[in-house]
Structure formats: structure tokens, C-alpha cells
Computed example of a mutant assay.
Amino acid sequence: MECSYFDAGACRSCTLMGTGYAVQLAGKQRAVSGALVDAAPAATWEEPFASAESGFRNKAKLVVGGRRGAPTLGILDAQGRGVDLRHCGLHEPGLAQAVPVLAELVAASGLRPYDVPGRQGELKHLLVTHSPDGELMTRFVLRSPGQLPRVRELVAELTARLPGTRVVSVNLQPEHKAVLEGEEEIVLTPASTLPMRVNGITLHLRPRSFFQTNTAVAAALYRQACAWVDATSGSVWDLYCGAGGFALHLARPDRDVLGVEVSAEAVASARTSAAELGADRARFVAADATSYLASGTGPACVVVNPPRRGIGSLADRLESSGVREVVYSSCNVRSLVRDLGRMPSLRVRSARLFDMFPQTGHHEVMVHLVRAD
């Protein structure tokens, strides 16, 4: 992949830009397998799952800079000034087409970009998600509700210019700090969820629901979990379930599946998807994953897909539980190694690298653990 922004020194986020993709993938495989050599000495490593080198991101997280009438959509430089990256080559084709149109609409709207050094202005970020069916969810992150009417006025034109528009919302983030979004979300369209069709299963995403940024690789993660858990009898719990991707893929007429997630909005998304699928034996609850495992009889299998920090004390709970199998998907091999060290009775049988983030050193690695007899 070649990138004019990288060549010009405007953006260095893709730290492996210019390195051949086969070399990138091999380097990541060496890194994660080397990190796990002691924690998973008997693991069978499956072939790494490769991504497209470019055009793979389903979500654009765009900092809005510049000035009224001439916004930049991209990142901030070291001085806190906007750097325009509206033609970033990582975006999926439909997303790549949408971002320049959004830039034009913002420029014509009168919305004033937030100036970080001066602490003035209103529009902080645009968060845009593109679905496999070509639909869009666009979120305007504002400092205050004062400019909400301007965004409301944009909805009709946005829908006309980008017919795939399904959800438009305003997120309020009043604090001056490096936080992408705030707690309050105001949906401006009749639809409040973006359907994401993955492996024939439709996941409904609300504005603040988490979903992997690479749809094709997320689909591969779900398929691999199903393959590993296929022969498992008994119930399966998906802890840190988000919008329910793993849980809904693992749901079967003869299997009880429970998804646990602290975000009530994500749980609402998962319940909507389950109802639409007719997955009667899939339940979702808004709760802390660690506390929930300790509150009742454990399942036969647990799937975890935690934040970068890992599962922490949940590893101790899993070790002392009756859980026979664990599928652990991690974006941080260091925290994964630490967590595996707290579960010595659960041995890694299989492992696989999924290249969720080409052009960077980031990785996603998933392991299948089985309790030693």
C-alpha cells in the first residue's frame, strides 16, 4: 500500500507503511507466537488470517479541525492543529466515498470546528460507520447542545447526498480532554441502529456500541470461535459480549447462550439482534463480567473478548470455576500472557493470529483453552 499522507509526513499512524504485507504478517506471527511460547508451549498454531492491505476499515474516527467553512477531517498535529486525511486509503470504499461529502457538508453548515489550543468552537469529531450493505451511521460529537439545530438541518441534505444514511446522531462531549465521546447521545433519525450483516447474521449497532473496525476479520473471528466450540455440549457464556457478535454466532437451538456486558446500550443492541434472528436460547444481561461469573453456576464454555487491559481477576474466577473451555480473543498479547499465567489448569490447545490492523504493529490473537484432566 502507498499513502501520500505518509509520504508527505502528514500522518505516521501506519507505522509499517512501506513494508511488504507478507513481511508485516510474518513479523506479527513471530511476535505473538514468541510472546506465547511459555504460556502456550503445546499450542497448535493455525495459519494467520490475512486482511486486505487497504480499504478495510469500516469506521472513520475523524478529529475535526481547521476553521468555520474550511474544516479538516483527520487527526491533530503536535500543536493541536487539524491535519486533513479525508482521503485515507484505509477506509472501505463506501466509507471513502462518504467522508469527502461529509467534509463538504460540514464546511457549508456553519459549524465551527473545535480549536483545541484555544478551547473554542463546537464540532470535535465525526464518527462514521459503514455497513456491509452500504448503510451509514454518522455521529457528530459537539461540545454543547447549542449547535444541535444546525446538525438537525443537515440531516435531510446528508440523506440526499449519501442515500445509504441510516442513523445520524449528536454526541455531547463538553470536557476539554482527550476523550472521543461523551455520555449523552441524541439520535436525529427514525432509525437508531445500524444493521451489520456478518456471516449471514445481522448485528444491530447503536451509536455507542462497540464493533471491530475490520468487518472481514471480525467475521473470521466469529467463524473460528464456532469451529473451536462446535463439539461443546452445555451452555456458553460470552463475557464482554459487546453487541453480541460471538454469542449470536454460537447460538443454536440446542444450546443456551448468555451474553454479559457492562454497557446497557450494547446489551440492547444484542437483544434486538437476537429477537430478529429468533435466537430464543440467547440471553443478554447488563452486568460486570467478573461479578456475574461468581454469582451462579458456571457454563461449560466461556468466550472473552476484553479491552486491552485483559480480564484481570476474572482469570482467577475462571481458574477456580468448573468451566471446561475458554475462547479468549485479545488485542494485547502482553495482557493475554499475564491472564494465561493466572489460569494454569486451562491449557492452550489452539491459537491463531487475525490481522485486524494492517500497516500497524497492532494484532488480534485468539486462543482456545481446555481444562487439563
Rank of each mutant, 00 (worst) to 15 (best):
P71S: 03
I186L: 14
M196Y: 10
E265I: 02
L277A: 13
L180P: 03
V99R: 06
A31R: 10
P307H: 06
A216N: 01
G296N: 01
A279E: 07
A279R: 09
L318G: 08
P132W: 10
L62E: 11
P174Y: 00
D288F: 07
R112Q: 12
V304F: 00
G65F: 04
A247R: 09
L95K: 13
V337T: 12
V64D: 12
A35T: 08
S269G: 15
A108H: 08
P100V: 08
Q24Y: 12
V101Q: 15
H176I: 14
R67I: 08
G82R: 06
L346C: 00
R86F: 04
A266K: 02
P93L: 07
G74F: 10
N58W: 10
R342T: 13
T44A: 12
T72W: 01
G20P: 13
G121Q: 09
S291W: 02
D280P: 00
A315G: 01
L62T: 04
C3R: 04
L127H: 01
E276R: 07
R208M: 12
V141H: 02
L277W: 09
S235D: 12
L111F: 06
V337E: 07
V260M: 01
R150S: 10
A39I: 11
G361L: 07
D316T: 10
L73A: 07
Y5N: 07
V99E: 05
L293F: 11
T202D: 09
R139M: 15
F49E: 08
A315L: 02
T129V: 13
A96K: 13
S209H: 14
E153L: 10
R12F: 09
G20I: 00
G182S: 08
M1C: 06
G310N: 08
T215R: 07
C241A: 15
Q173M: 09
F56G: 05
H204G: 04
C241M: 15
G310Q: 08
R309A: 15
